[in-house]
Computed example of a mutant assay.
Amino acid sequence: MSEDGFRATYGTGPEGVWAAPGRVNLIGEHTDYNDGFVMPFALPHATVAAVARRADGRLRLHTGSPDVPAGVVELHVDELEPGGGAGWADYPAGVIWALRDAGYEITGADVHFESTVPTGAGLSSSAALEVVTAVALNDLYGLGLERWRIARLCQRAENVYVGAPTGIMDQTASACCTEGHALWLDTRDLSQRQIPFDLASQGLRLLVVDTRVTHAHSEGEYGKRRAGCEQAAALLGVDALRDIPYEGLGDALARVEDPELRPLVRHVVTEDRRVERVVELLETGDARAIGPVLTEGHASLRDDFKVSCPELDLVVSAGVEAGALGARMTGGGFGGSAIVLVEESAAEKTAEAIVGAFATAGHREPRVFTAVPSAGARRLV
């Protein structure tokens, strides 16, 4: 399909086809830019790129997505600058800018994208777009970049070129996750472990509920939370909030007088601890016990970090009332998706209860699907 789209757009075939997935974050929200712990896994939903090199400096980008204006975006690699203003094309263009700024010679490319990652759903559609671009160019240009380095360059593209102050989790998940596992990641040093996450073998299912409420990370609120965390860390005399031990949280909170900063500190420190608890439970084979930890995390995001919204709260409350083991919002917040851990036998009933609750509340019908831990970025052809 992507090869056909490339030929229809550019009149010739690509040199290869690559894929990079979206992700669900199981636990560890708003901890990545605090040097903390996260635990995402890759979805089967992916962005696919058919790519061919160019030697003339031209960069031509095209997407088959019906959600963006039709036509090829044409740029020149020598003219790429942060704040490019090319809309969706800023994400792949930013990757090429970041690669060239790091000293890698990229002389141009023709790219056709297609994607099954829902946009605006908190499932990292932007990271998938960035990572698939970087992985393709890494292969075609023989750059020899390790996956963690690709993730770092993609994060820089989003932070500096696009202007969204995101952490490293999304790009690392898309680049590094493996099938059947969740990825425990220390965002400070990028050390990582693959944690077995086979819910089906335990009679469980993890539902993703896309509320269809869109968010925009590059707009104010996300940046405000990040700035608040950095301010609190400075007040506490640490490099980042991950340096506050869970056992010392009470003392730290007593030292933060600002009523807006105090709950940010509480969320980050307790969320790092929740990641550790989920790892411990999964490694002992007790996946059911992570349910209450997920729900506890949602309460923290709702009440302390204040990044939830009525639709996300409704997913959690309706899911738990219907018998779910636990539920929480996932992603940056202000919309997007929530995850719901259920017994396999109760999955359909729980999904119906959530959809019914949305109808009763007058909300747009959510999209519900099962999350299956899948492979990270890879070459297809």
Rank of each mutant, 00 (worst) to 15 (best):
G13L: 12
P21T: 08
H30S: 09
T31C: 13
D32P: 09
M39A: 08
M39I: 08
A42G: 04
T47M: 10
A49W: 05
A49D: 08
T63V: 07
G64H: 04
G64W: 04
P66V: 11
P66G: 08
V68Q: 03
G71T: 05
L80H: 06
A86E: 13
A93E: 09
L99V: 07
D101M: 13
A102M: 10
T107L: 05
E114W: 02
P118C: 13
P118Y: 09
T119C: 13
S125W: 00
S126E: 08
T133F: 11
T133S: 14
L137F: 10
L137C: 09
L153Q: 03
A157E: 02
E158C: 00
G163I: 01
P165K: 01
C177Y: 06
R188Y: 14
D189L: 14
L199W: 06
L199Q: 06
V209R: 00
V209S: 00
T211G: 04
R212K: 15
T214P: 05
H215L: 04
E219W: 08
E221R: 10
Y222W: 05
G223R: 00
R226E: 08
E230K: 14
L235P: 03
V238A: 00
D239G: 15
I244W: 03
Y246T: 15
G248W: 11
D251C: 07
R262P: 01
R262T: 10
D272M: 14
L281W: 09
G291Y: 01
P292W: 01
R302W: 04
V307S: 06
L314C: 04
L314P: 03
A322V: 10
G326L: 03
G333F: 01
L341S: 01
V342G: 01
E344W: 07
E352N: 14
E352C: 11
H363L: 00
R367W: 12
R367Y: 11
P373K: 02
A375W: 09
R378T: 14
